[in-house]
Each structure stands twice: as structure tokens, then as C-alpha cells.
């Protein structure tokens, strides 16, 4: 059971950041994961008063406040139009509506959880995180960074003519995924993102231009084979490395073929 000594609704990002410098402080997102731990928290920092619970869409980008819930992502028309429904596809099997009404994009991304559908799908796009101290950092870089005590303020997705497809494999519908797979094509460049390997999601670009030109069944298979060879996988009780590598091939090929309409 988690214990919390103090609860503070931060009135500014500066206040939140300062409180968070104590190693035993925690910013609370949806609190779903935090609650399950046995942490003795000194100060629980609530960002709820900072107005970061909206998705702003401009011609160039989406700016998604860290307190936006997964349910908001699921229902946001603009975001799902740009992602071709991939965002909704990524989050809809996460436990249930009540869970997704609490879980936040900030919590999901900052946690950089291995199993994260959210991280996987955002990595398929030209995405960034805005950190209070660290400024704007490409999501692909952020994934590799060690957890620090900065404050994740927003997730930014630049609209760059992207097309996306999302596939995941679950043993039961609302279980953690055995594997997640997002394929993105941003300004003509393809990438595959594989998560729940079970380690955190990793991006692989189509460096060999296997998908150049019109996608065919053969090119989809070749790219899937390439991704399966290059993407490290591991075992846990939801699936072995061999099965995951098998799924990398199957899901990547399906995602590419979905995008290519073949």
C-alpha cells in the first residue's frame, strides 16, 4: 500500500518542479500504477489545476497536455483523423473506460513502460515531449533517457503527412499486450515501432527502403522480415522471445499491408 505524507495541488509548473526535486516526491498522473506500488511518498504533486487537460490542434501540430486522459485521446476526432484511427486502436483495450478516464498521457509517456500501447503509437509519428526544464525533446530520444525529476508538460505531435497503422496481440482482450506494433509513414519514410518486447518500445526505420514505391504483399513481407531480424525480444510469462519475434513479423506485415491497402 502506498503512503503519502503531503498532497499539493501545484499552482505553477515551477512549484511542481521544485516539489518534485525531493526524491520521495511523485507527480501523480492517473495514479493507477503509482497506487499499486509500496512507495512511501513524501509529497504527491497534483497538476490538476494547471489546465493541462486539453488537446490543442493547429495546422502544424497537436499539443496534448500531460493531464489529458487516454479516453480523451480515444475520442479526439482530429487526433484520430491524423492517425487514421491508430490512437483509438492503441488505447481501446486498456482495461476499461473508467481506467482510461483516469490514466493520463503524461503518466503513460513519462513512465516509459515496456507494455505501453500509448508510447508505441506516439513513437510512430513525429512526436516530442515538452519537459519543464529539458525543453522539447524528440520522443524517440526521450524513450532512451533515464528517468529524472523533470516535469513532462505536453506531448507534441507534428503533422507531417503521416499515415499509421496499429496492431497489438493480447492473450485476453484487456490484458497487457504480448506485443505492440505501430507502423508509421511520415513524409514518405516508414518506421516500425515495436513495444512490449517486453522491454520498452523501440523504433526501426526502413533504412533499406524496402517499402519505397507502392506497397506490395512482397515488400510488406520483406520489411516485416527485416524488422523481425533486427528487433530484440525477450521472454516473460506472457510470451517467449521466439513467439514475440514471430509476432513482430506477423503484426508488422499486417500493419504495412493495411497501410498499403494490399
Amino acid at each position: 500500500m502506498i503512503t503519502i505524507q503531503n498532497y499539493v495541488r501545484a499552482q505553477s509548473l515551477q512549484e511542481a518542479w521544485e516539489l518534485n526535486q525531493n526524491k520521495r516526491s511523485r507527480i501523480i498522473g492517473g495514479m493507477l500504477w503509482l497506487k499499486m506500488g509500496k512507495t512511501a511518498v513524501h509529497t504527491a504533486i497534483d497538476l490538476g489545476d494547471l489546465g493541462l487537460n486539453t488537446i490543442e490542434e493547429t495546422e502544424e501540430a497537436f499539443s496534448i497536455g500531460c493531464s489529458v486522459t487516454l479516453r480523451q485521446l480515444e475520442l479526439h476526432e482530429g487526433l484520430n483523423t491524423y492517425f487514421g484511427g491508430a490512437i483509438a486502436a492503441a488505447v481501446r483495450d486498456i482495461v476499461g473506460v473508467q481506467f482510461r478516464n483516469l490514466a493520463t498521457v503524461g503518466g503513460s509517456i513519462f513512465g516509459r513502460f515496456g507494455f505501453s500501447d500509448v508510447l508505441t503509437v506516439f513513437l510512430a509519428a513525429d512526436s516530442y515531449v515538452e519537459l519543464y526544464q529539458g525543453g522539447i525533446v524528440a520522443l524517440e530520444e526521450f524513450v532512451k533517457m533515464k528517468k529524472d525529476r523533470d516535469v513532462l508538460v505536453r506531448v507534441i505531435v507534428k503533422k507531417r503527412g503521416g499515415r499509421f497503422a496499429y496492431h497489438a496481440m493480447r492473450n485476453a482482450r484487456t490484458d497487457f499486450p504480448v506485443l505492440t506494433c505501430a507502423v508509421g509513414c511520415v513524409e514518405g519514410t516508414y518506421r516500425a515501432v515495436i513495444g512490449a518486447r517486453p522491454a520498452r518500445a523501440r523504433v526501426l526505420y526502413d533504412e533499406k527502403n524496402l517499402l519505397a514505391g507502392i506497397i506490395t504483399a512482397d515488400s510488406a513481407a520483406a520489411f516485416a522480415e527485416y524488422v523481425a531480424k533486427k528487433m530484440p525480444t525477450g521472454s516473460n510469462h506472457r510470451g517467449s522471445a521466439a513467439y514475440r519475434t514471430h509476432l513482430v513479423r506477423v503484426l508488422t506485415e499486417r500493419a504495412v499491408r493495411e497501410m498499403g491497402g494490399c
Partner: peptide, 27 residues
């Protein structure tokens, strides 16, 4: 449960269904 999986504790917070097991009363 203790893991936000069962939905038994569902209440409406500002008319939105949430898991009351995962919300601090302070919030």
C-alpha cells in the same frame, strides 16, 4: 482488486465514470 482491473468501485466524478480505488480523496 487492488490493481484497477475489476470496475467494482466505479463512481462518477464530475459525471465521468472513474475507479474510486485509484483516486485520492484529496483529488
Amino acid at each position: 482488486c487492488e490493481t484497477a482491473n475489476c470496475g467494482l468501485c466505479t463512481v462518477l466524478m464530475d459525471d465521468v465514470p472513474v475507479l474510486s480505488c485509484s483516486v485520492l480523496a484529496a483529488r
